[in-house]
Nucleic acid binder design. Structure first.
Lengths: 347, 347
DNA sequence: CTTGAAATTTGGAACGATCTAAATTATCCG
DNA sequence: CGGATAATTTAGATCGTTCCAAATTTCAAG
């Protein structure tokens, strides 16, 4: 009744060769004769053999798994990132272990430990808020390559791939200033992340460069989500001197800001200029199409995966810190130059 | 120089016990004496031991991995579903293998094969379009429990958890009819899926029940995406007899429809009623908030995972086909009763 | 003390692949 | 045909854990 598992020995017997030869065939070795290869493959199909990776990993000491740890999978930025990683990882014959930490350090620790136990060959991590150098140290010590994405951890001795947040923010604000805006807000995001800091600094620098007010009143934090955007813009509109434009921490916030504006019967792109950050897929198709700093999450995932694979294959490499260039995708939500209506509401 | 891997034997030696005892401790067996357990745990910490799951799996013939295969991770419905699965799977001591097929059958086959090789204990699959019974048969034969989610595959001998698409569509259309709509469209989606068929049938049935026109002209297919929604509503507005309301295939389409309406200077919820399907997180915070058939993707993920775990633990169970109840979340986008403006544009 | 049962601990054989080094077979050339 | 070289194939050890059966220790009761 109970069917035994089919192993290399079984197919060796069936094909009339030794298990070593079967192993060679499984690995696609060029050493083996075409005729025997065919015989073996036939037997494999015949018996419905399923390769046992656990056994292989045991001997080889490292599996063909790469792990990816993200801090918030429900944010489509990270979902797209994961898709990008999966794409290249799969075609390199690896398989992806994906875990979501929901921004919880404890979960992140568990997840990374579990991946180590499974013998992952490398890890791509978008760290949860508050991750420290020490959380990654054991990986480095064990010789497991790590690529940090999106968020960097200062002092960590691993590679990182983050987008040029500062330059992106500068470009966005310059664009708004060129269009005549004088009161530009920075909306959304939590102040304790490196990403926030960089975008914020770019915003300030561009403002300063244009000789504009860089006081703190126009900077309003919130959760980096759509709902956060709604509350941020609400607060902004309570100010005595209202902004006429805003650079948002990310696209989710920007969408929320648009929602909030509409709730006040203001049309984003006409009555108020909105620029986002990240360029998630919906940015293009939204109405109005969202002007945003284009980061291409899927592309970032692909590049992170390539970087990681390079490190895995070349044994040991110096950690690289790559900043990924960024461009401003100008669409409708940043509107035309400041015109009648904007002047009107801003006064 | 080269540090050797630390194994049970090493910690056995360090703790002055046998490797069997260490193994017992590792598994949290109640057989072992408290004092020795402490000694062993100390040694484990001391030497920085990392459990080798490959070795364990080899012996035990099945790993604590559950696989989840989704057809489109960039769709936030599935991202949320995956998060729900991850949640319960992790707390049950399993770890999740997530793969995205991008709706490609070939990729799906590879991915499922790879998961088998890794010895997954069970699989949650949202199958790619065109998946056939034969694609799942080998899993059943190998005694690997499978739970299908979202899309069912008629004739497959596995459990499934799908939402009550028919009832949801009926409820949505009834609601629109009660509000006075007489020309209700069904927008978006591909006609060759079981999900489409069910929602569509619900739409028809409710229309018929109200004695309304069920001719095909008001049914307009499109890609089940935001962009698809835009094109679908454009087509709908070209009709000589325009609809005043629409049930959309899913929320992404519904958002696209809202976008398309705005592009024509029509305000969703005021000039035209829109109802979506799925209730993704953005539905609540969008403006106008989207009325939608609430499916709670994360909850579905959790339930699917629980169902799967039940099957894994209880050895062998009869496949169950669960249809998950659904409720209409009435928000702003379906507007008030047909009023002045709607009559105006619809004539 | 003995003794039997209960509580702990343990040696050694798996698990199913890979790898090394050596054996076998085929091929070539004068 | 002999010998050398190249091409294939193979035996057997090995990876790090779990599991079985048996051994040892502990303990309570007689």
């Amino acid at each position: 009744m109970g069917k035994e598992r089919v192993t290399v020995v079984d197919i060796a017997r069936a094909a009339g060769v030794s298990k070593s030869t079967v192993s060679l065939v499984l690995q696609g070795s060029p050493l083996v004769n075409e005729a025997t290869r065919a015989k073996v493959n036939a037997a494999i199909r015949e018996l419905g053999y399923v390769y046992n990776r656990s056994a292989a990993n045991l001997r080889q000491a490292r599996s063909k798994i790469i792990g990816i740890v993200v801090n918030d999978l429900t944010n489509s930025f990270f979902a797209e990132l994961a898709v990008g990683v999966d794409e290249v990882v799969q075609s390199a014959g690896f398989v992806q272990f994906l875990a979501n930490t929901s921004e919880k350090l404890e979960r992140q620790r568990e997840v990374i430990a579990s991946m180590r136990e499974h013998g992952v060959s490398g890890l791509i991590i978008s760290p949860a808020r508050g991750t420290e150098v020490g959380d990654l140290a054991p990986l480095g010590a064990a010789g497991i390559p790590v690529v940090l994405v999106v968020r960097d951890i200062p002092g960590a001795d691993v590679s990182s791939l983050i987008s040029d947040n500062h330059a992106g923010a500068v470009a966005a604000v310059r664009h708004l200033v060129e269009r005549g805006h004088r009161r530009v807000a920075f909306l959304g995001g939590f102040a304790d992340t490196a990403v926030f800091e960089a975008r914020m600094r770019g915003y300030r620098d561009a403002l300063q460069e244009a000789g504009l007010d860089t006081s703190e009143t126009l900077t309003i934090g919130s959760a980096p989500s759509r709902a956060g955007g709604v509350t941020a813009i609400e607060q902004a509109m309570m100010l005595k001197e209202r902004p006429t434009a805003a650079l948002c921490f990310n696209d989710a916030v920007a969408f929320g800001v648009c929602d909030g504006l509409r709730a006040r019967r203001l049309e984003p792109g006409e009555d108020f200029a909105v620029i986002g950050f990240d360029d998630v897929i919906e940015a293009k198709t939204a109405v109005p199409a969202l002007t945003t700093v284009s980061v291409d999450p899927q592309g970032m995932g692909e590049r992170a995966a390539e970087l990681l694979l390079k490190q895995i294959n070349s044994g040991r490499v110096e950690p690289e810190a790559i900043v990924s260039p960024v461009r401003l995708a100008i669409r409708q939500s940043c509107g035309a130059a400041v015109g009648r209506r904007m002047k009107e509401i801003s006064s």
